[in-house]
C-alpha cells in the first residue's frame, strides 16, 4: 500500500504546484499510515529533491516516448507505476495536463476520483475530499468508497512544507506505448508566473478604457511581483492576451490576493476569482457589485488610485 504522486516536470524543472502535490501526498500517506512515493516522467534535474517535501521514494521513468505529453501514454505509465507500488491513492496536480490524466487514470484503475481538491482528505471513517463547485459559488464534500482513489489538487490550496530530505532517485522501468499525439510546436508564456499558480494577481476591466492605459497596471504588478489578469470584454476586445481572461469562461484562479481594477464584478467574472483569499476592489462607482465580494475597497478613479498604490507598495518593499 502507498500513496503515489505524479509530479509534473516542466523543461526538467518543478513548479510550485508540484511541491504542493508532494506535500499533499505525504500528509495523505501519513493519515493512512503508508509510504509516500513520487513519480517523475521524463527528464528532470534534481528529482531527488522531492524528498524534501515528503516523498519517501522518488521513481523516475526515462523514455523517449515520454518526451512530449500524450495523456494516453502518460496515464498508461502512471497506472503501471501505481500498480508496482500498490498505490491506493494517486495524487495529481490540477493543471491542464493533470486534468487530462485524472479521468483516464480513474477509469484505468477503476478508482473514484475528485478533480480539484482544495483540502486534505478527511480519512476518519471513510475518505472524503472537498472541492469547489458551481464555479466557486459553493463547496462539496465527495465520498470515495472505492479501494483506489485518484485526486487532483487545485493550485494554491495548501502551503508547501518541508517534510523530509532529499532521497536517491530510483529508475523505474515500464512499457511505454507509442504516442499517438505528435507535437508540432509549443509556445510558453515567458516571464510572469502563470496565472493558475500566481499568489498575487492584479486584474483590469473595461474601466481601464483601453490597452494603452495598461502601463499603470503593469507597474503595480511589477512592484508587487503579481501576475496580470483581465475581465472577459477586455480579452474579447483584444486589449489583452486571451490567457489573461479570468471568470466563468476563462481561467479560474485562487490567489492569495486579487486586486480588481475597473471591473464591475459581474457574477460570471466572480465565478473565476471568488475563491481568492483576499480581494481588493478599486472602482469609482460605490454601487459596483464587486464591493460585496471584496475584503478591501477603494472608491475612486483608478487612474489616480493605482499609481498611488504602486508608490505605496514600492515604499513598503523598500522599508
Amino acid at each position: 500500500m502507498s500513496v503515489l504522486i505524479y509530479v509534473e516536470s516542466n523543461k526538467g524543472g518543478f513548479k510550485k504546484t508540484a511541491f504542493e502535490a508532494v506535500t499533499y501526498g505525504r500528509k495523505t500517506a501519513d493519515a493512512l499510515g503508508v509510504p509516500c512515493v513520487a513519480l517523475v516522467l521524463g527528464a528532470a534535474e534534481n528529482a531527488g529533491s522531492l524528498g524534501s517535501y515528503g516523498a519517501s521514494r522518488v521513481l523516475q521513468v526515462q523514455d523517449a516516448g515520454l518526451e512530449n505529453f500524450d495523456s494516453q501514454v502518460y496515464a498508461n505509465v502512471i497506472a503501471q507505476a501505481a500498480e508496482s507500488v500498490g498505490a491506493q491513492v494517486v495524487v495529481l496536480s490540477q493543471t491542464a495536463n493533470g486534468k487530462a490524466l485524472l479521468g483516464r487514470l480513474a477509469v484505468r484503475l477503476d478508482a473514484g476520483s475528485v478533480s480539484g481538491a482544495i483540502a486534505l482528505p478527511d480519512t476518519k471513517g471513510g475518505f472524503r475530499v472537498r472541492k469547489s463547485v458551481f464555479s466557486g459559488k459553493a463547496f462539496a464534500e465527495y465520498e470515495l468508497g472505492t479501494e483506489k482513489k485518484v485526486i487532483s489538487l487545485a493550485g494554491n490550496s495548501i502551503p508547501v512544507e518541508q517534510l523530509g530530505s532529499p532521497v536517491a532517485v530510483e529508475a523505474l522501468s515500464v512499457d511505454v506505448p507509442a504516442p499517438k499525439v505528435r507535437l508540432v510546436e509549443i509556445k510558453r508564456i515567458e516571464g510572469d508566473i502563470p496565472l493558475p499558480e500566481a499568489e498575487l494577481v492584479v486584474s483590469g476591466g473595461r474601466g481601464m478604457k483601453g490597452p494603452e492605459n495598461w502601463g499603470i497596471l503593469e507597474d503595480l504588478g511589477k512592484a508587487l511581483g503579481a501576475t496580470l489578469a483581465c475581465s472577459r470584454p477586455v480579452a474579447d476586445s483584444d486589449w489583452r492576451p486571451h490567457h489573461e481572461h479570468v471568470g466563468q469562461t476563462g481561467g479560474v484562479i485562487r490567489p492569495n490576493l486579487y486586486i480588481a481594477v475597473g471591473i464591475s464584478g459581474a457574477i460570471q467574472h466572480l465565478a473565476g476569482v471568488n475563491n481568492s483569499k483576499v480581494i481588493v476592489v478599486i472602482n469609482k462607482d460605490p454601487e459596483a457589485p464587486f464591493f460585496k465580494a471584496a475584503d478591501y475597497g477603494v472608491v475612486g478613479d483608478l487612474f489616480e488610485v493605482v499609481p498611488r498604490l504602486t508608490e505605496a507598495v514600492k515604499k513598503f518593499k523598500a522599508s
Binding site: G112, F139, E143, D295
Partner: peptide, 17 residues
C-alpha cells in the same frame, strides 16, 4: 464510485473595509 455527501455555501463575506 463517488458521491457528494454534503454541500456548503461559502461563509458570508464580512462587509468590505
Amino acid at each position: 464510485k463517488v458521491k457528494v455527501t454534503t454541500y456548503e455555501l461559502p461563509p458570508a463575506k464580512t462587509a468590505v473595509k
